[in-house]
Every structure is written in structure tokens, then in C-alpha cells.
Design a protein around this nucleic acid. Structure first.
Length: 285
DNA sequence: ATGGTCGCGGAGCGA
């Protein structure tokens, strides 16, 4: 950006501020998604991240904690409302928000009481948000892989219902799918393998076709930006990751979207999650 | 990626 563009943006901000009768910056909403790989193991880092980045909404995956064992007091003390849908040991999703969370929906329409807890939706300040943890699938062709594809087919019906609410909609989480070769450190070596296979990519495309856009790709065309790096084999240090955490936005939310960024710094240091947070910035609806 | 690590729960599974 050159100096002229910066001045122009400043002038626009001033005009809008005067019209709205406020001073300071144009109100923006930060909505983040983060697979924390156990909320209890990650609690110090999550609290620190909330304090420094101050997102309006954080959508979490792999909390790995029951609703009873959830560290509710710590999150509320940090200034956040909580909606949670967890289970023992595996999976688990949650929403943290500075403003109240209403109209909460847990799970998919045809889930059983014993189903994996992988989806939670809620409304925060006029924006509908969904935290989603898509099954990993383990290996192409195995039972877990078939379960992943079936689960994504069921997620279509859930997404239709959410879109039908007619609100700005952000569906974000760990999709366990790298949409195309730009999202893979070794597209040739990993071609057709788990997280990259064509049926998985087509399943994600089918969800998007309902009326979503990949928020990151709205602003960034380049490859080599990743959100997950395997703990094994020093993959992060070697820069070998995949972009599998995505912020999908419907048309209304896309019109408000200003940026989507990966907080790669959060993958560094002591006891990181294997996923980095992804942060979307929207104008206030 | 030859394999390599985490988290949970207390061995082996899931990622």
C-alpha cells in the first residue's frame, strides 16, 4: 500500500466516523478459529492468546473435555461467554464470545446422542457462527475415511439450515481438507492421500456450492500458507504444513470481510497446538 | 515423511 492509498483510507474512515457520530476506528469484529488439541492442556496459551489478540469470537475444536469438566470459570474470568459441546478424550467444540451467545445449536440434525461432538452454532451480535471439526479420516479408503465423507454429506443439510436463517454466516474450523495444491507443502508426494484426496476436496466444494466462499482465498491467492503442521518429524521447523483450517463465509458475511490471517506465531514456543489460529476481520453488520 | 510427537489415560488409539 502506498502513502496515497493510506491517506484515502484514513479519509474514508473519518467520513464514516462522522456519519456514525463516533470517534476512533470503524468498528470491526474479529472472529477466530483454533483447533487447540485439548483445551485443558492448552489453557495457559489460550488465555494468553485471548488477552493479547482479544478476538470478539473464538471458535474452538478438539477441546477434548466434557461439559462438566470444562474450565468455565477461567474463560469467563477472561471476559468471554461460553457455549460448549464436548465429550471425554476426543473431539469437542466450543464458542467463546465477548457478547452473549444465543440460539445455540449442537450437533448435526440426524446425530444420535452417542455421536461425535463436532459442531456447535450460535448467534453473536447479529452474526451467525459455526465451529466445526470435520473427521480426520485416517487413511484413504479405510472405515474412518468413509465415515468422514458420510459426515460431510450430513453436514450439507446442517449448512442449508444455517444459510436459511438469512444472517451473516461464518462456518469455521478444522476441515481436515487441503482445498488445492497451493495448500500442500508437497502436492506431488501427497497427491491422493488423506487430507488431499479428490473425494474430500469434492465434498468441501459441495459445501461451498451451497453459498460459501473460502475467506482466506478472497484475499490471498498464494500458496505455502499453512494452518497445521504435524508434531512428528519437526514439520513446523521445516516449514512443511497443510492449510486445513478454513473460514467459510456466506455472501452476506463475505461482503463484510476485510481480512483472513493465520497466526503462525502461535505454533511456536512451549506446548503449542499442532494448529495455528486463523483470524477473520469483518466490518460490523 | 524412512521415522520422527503429542494428548489422554494409564495400554494403545487417534491425529
Amino acid at each position: 500500500m502506498n502513502a496515497t492509498a493510506e491517506i484515502a483510507a484514513d479519509e474514508r474512515a473519518t467520513v464514516v466516523d462522522e456519519r456514525m457520530g463516533i470517534t476512533g476506528n470503524i468498528p470491526a469484529v474479529k472472529i477466530a478459529t483454533w483447533n487447540v488439541n485439548s483445551l485443558r492442556a492448552r489453557l495457559p496459551r489460550v488465555l494468553s492468546w485471548l488477552a493479547t489478540r482479544s478476538p470478539d469470537v473464538l471458535l474452538l475444536q478438539e477441546t477434548k473435555v466434557t461439559d462438566e469438566e470444562f474450565p468455565l470459570a477461567e474463560i469467563e474470568a477472561a471476559g468471554y461467554h461460553v457455549a460448549r459441546f464436548g465429550q471425554k478424550t476426543y473431539n469437542g467444540v466450543a464458542i467463546f464470545a465477548k457478547k452473549p451467545i444465543t440460539d445455540v445449536v449442537k450437533g448435526l440434525p440426524d446425530d444420535l446422542p452417542t455421536s461425535d461432538r463436532r459442531v456447535i452454532a450460535g448467534t453473536v451480535d447479529g452474526v451467525r457462527v459455526v465451529s466445526v471439526y470435520v473427521p480426520n479420516g485416517a487413511e484413504v479408503g479405510c472405515d474412518k475415511y468413509l465415515y468422514k465423507l458420510q459426515w460431510l454429506a450430513r453436514f450439507i443439510e446442517f449448512s442449508r439450515r444455517e444459510l436459511a436463517l438469512g444472517m451473516p454466516l461464518v462456518v469455521a474450523g478444522d476441515w481436515n481438507i487441503a482445498p488445492d495444491d497451493r495448500d500442500v507443502h508437497d502436492p506431488v508426494g501427497l497427491a491422493g492421500s488423506i487430507l488431499c484426496s479428490e473425494p474430500e476436496r469434492l465434498a468441501l466444494t459441495a459445501v461451498k456450492a451451497l453459498g460459501f466462499e473460502d475467506g482466506f482465498r478472497k484475499f490471498n491467492a498464494e500458496g505455502g500458507v499453512y494452518t497445521w503442521w504435524d508434531y512428528r518429524a519437526a514439520m513446523f521447523r521445516r516449514g512443511l504444513g497443510l492449510r486445513i483450517d478454513h473460514v467459510l463465509v456466506n455472501e452476506t458475511a463475505a461482503a463484510l470481510l476485510e481480512a483472513v490471517e493465520v497466526d503462525k506465531e502461535e505454533r511456536k514456543g512451549e506446548k503449542p497446538s499442532d494448529h495455528a489460529p486463523v483470524v477473520a476481520t469483518l466490518r460490523q453488520p
